[in-house]
Protein backbone atom coordinates (compact mmCIF):
# COMPACT_ATOMS: atom_id res chain seq x y z
CA UNK A 1 0.00 0.00 0.00
CA UNK A 2 1.52 3.33 -0.93
CA UNK A 3 1.44 6.21 1.51
CA UNK A 4 -1.26 8.22 -0.28
CA UNK A 5 -3.57 5.22 -0.20
CA UNK A 6 -2.80 4.62 3.45
CA UNK A 7 -3.50 8.25 4.28
CA UNK A 8 -6.83 8.18 2.48
CA UNK A 9 -7.89 5.03 4.34
CA UNK A 10 -6.87 6.53 7.65
CA UNK A 11 -8.89 9.63 6.90
CA UNK A 12 -11.90 7.70 5.74
CA UNK A 13 -11.96 5.74 8.99
CA UNK A 14 -12.02 8.88 11.09
CA UNK A 15 -14.35 10.83 8.84
CA UNK A 16 -17.59 9.36 10.16
CA UNK A 17 -16.68 10.42 13.68
CA UNK A 18 -15.49 13.83 12.51
CA UNK A 19 -18.74 14.49 10.65
CA UNK A 20 -20.81 13.53 13.70
CA UNK A 21 -18.62 15.76 15.88
CA UNK A 22 -19.17 18.74 13.58
CA UNK A 23 -22.89 18.44 14.30
CA UNK A 24 -22.51 18.24 18.09
CA UNK A 25 -23.69 21.77 18.81
CA UNK A 26 -26.01 22.68 15.98
CA UNK A 27 -27.62 21.30 12.81
CA UNK A 28 -25.70 22.13 9.65
CA UNK A 29 -26.11 21.49 5.94
CA UNK A 30 -23.57 19.60 3.83
CA UNK A 31 -21.42 22.50 2.74
CA UNK A 32 -21.28 23.89 6.29
CA UNK A 33 -20.20 20.50 7.61
CA UNK A 34 -17.43 20.31 5.03
CA UNK A 35 -16.28 23.88 5.77
CA UNK A 36 -16.30 23.26 9.53
CA UNK A 37 -14.24 20.11 9.25
CA UNK A 38 -11.83 21.71 6.79
CA UNK A 39 -11.34 24.68 9.09
CA UNK A 40 -10.77 22.58 12.20
CA UNK A 41 -8.55 19.98 10.63
CA UNK A 42 -6.82 22.18 8.03
CA UNK A 43 -7.58 19.43 5.59
CA UNK A 44 -9.28 19.44 2.21
CA UNK A 45 -12.31 17.18 2.12
CA UNK A 46 -13.91 15.95 -1.05
CA UNK A 47 -17.67 16.19 -1.35
CA UNK A 48 -17.68 12.79 -2.99
CA UNK A 49 -16.67 11.21 0.32
CA UNK A 50 -18.73 13.33 2.70
CA UNK A 51 -22.18 13.15 1.13
CA UNK A 52 -22.39 9.34 0.95
CA UNK A 53 -21.29 9.22 4.60
CA UNK A 54 -24.07 11.62 5.54
CA UNK A 55 -26.52 9.42 3.66
CA UNK A 56 -25.30 6.33 5.51
CA UNK A 57 -25.39 8.03 8.91
CA UNK A 58 -28.95 9.05 8.25
CA UNK A 59 -29.88 5.54 7.15
CA UNK A 60 -28.68 4.08 10.44
CA UNK A 61 -30.51 6.72 12.47
CA UNK A 62 -27.46 8.60 13.72
CA UNK A 63 -28.69 11.70 11.91
CA UNK A 64 -31.95 13.19 10.80
CA UNK A 65 -32.18 15.30 7.66
CA UNK A 66 -34.61 18.08 6.95
CA UNK A 67 -35.04 20.43 4.03
CA UNK A 68 -35.14 23.99 5.28
CA UNK A 69 -36.36 26.83 3.13
CA UNK A 70 -34.00 29.84 3.23
CA UNK A 71 -35.37 33.36 3.27
CA UNK A 72 -33.24 34.24 0.32
CA UNK A 73 -32.02 31.56 -2.03
CA UNK A 74 -32.82 27.89 -2.22
CA UNK A 75 -33.72 25.19 0.33
CA UNK A 76 -30.88 23.29 1.98
CA UNK A 77 -30.77 19.91 3.61
CA UNK A 78 -29.87 20.26 7.28
CA UNK A 79 -28.51 17.36 9.28
CA UNK A 80 -28.95 17.02 13.03
CA UNK A 81 -27.67 14.45 15.53
CA UNK A 82 -30.23 12.05 16.97
CA UNK A 83 -29.93 10.69 20.51
CA UNK A 84 -28.60 7.45 19.04
CA UNK A 85 -26.09 9.50 17.03
CA UNK A 86 -24.87 11.26 20.16
CA UNK A 87 -24.45 7.96 21.96
CA UNK A 88 -22.56 6.56 19.03
CA UNK A 89 -20.28 9.56 18.83
CA UNK A 90 -19.48 9.34 22.55
CA UNK A 91 -18.61 5.66 22.13
CA UNK A 92 -16.44 6.51 19.12
CA UNK A 93 -14.62 9.23 21.05
CA UNK A 94 -13.83 6.74 23.81
CA UNK A 95 -12.54 4.25 21.29
CA UNK A 96 -10.52 6.91 19.57
CA UNK A 97 -8.93 8.08 22.82
CA UNK A 98 -7.92 4.62 23.88
CA UNK A 99 -6.72 3.69 20.43
CA UNK A 100 -4.64 6.81 19.89
CA UNK A 101 -3.08 6.52 23.32
CA UNK A 102 -2.04 2.98 22.51
CA UNK A 103 -0.71 3.95 19.11
CA UNK A 104 1.25 6.84 20.58
CA UNK A 105 2.84 4.53 23.12
CA UNK A 106 3.86 2.17 20.35
CA UNK A 107 5.21 4.99 18.24
CA UNK A 108 7.38 6.13 21.12
CA UNK A 109 9.00 2.68 21.12
CA UNK A 110 9.71 3.05 17.42
CA UNK A 111 11.36 6.42 17.98
CA UNK A 112 13.55 5.16 20.82
CA UNK A 113 14.74 2.20 18.85
CA UNK A 114 15.58 4.43 15.95
CA UNK A 115 17.56 6.78 18.21
CA UNK A 116 19.56 3.94 19.74
CA UNK A 117 20.75 2.64 16.39
Amino acid sequence: MDSAQWESQLRKGALEMVVLAALWRTPLYGLEIIRTVERELALALSEGTVYPILSRLRADNSLTAQWVEAEAGHPRKYYALTDAGRQRLLAMVNTWDEFSRGVNRLLKLVEQKDASQ
Binding site: Y29, G30, L31, E47, Y51, S55, H74, P75, R76, K77
Partner: peptide
Amino acid sequence: IVRELEAH
Protein backbone atom coordinates in the same frame (compact mmCIF):
# COMPACT_ATOMS: atom_id res chain seq x y z
CA ILE B 1 -29.59 12.89 -3.23
CA VAL B 2 -29.64 14.72 -6.56
CA ARG B 3 -31.45 17.70 -5.09
CA GLU B 4 -28.95 17.97 -2.25
CA LEU B 5 -25.95 17.89 -4.59
CA GLU B 6 -27.65 20.42 -6.82
CA ALA B 7 -28.07 22.78 -3.85
CA HIS B 8 -24.44 22.19 -2.91
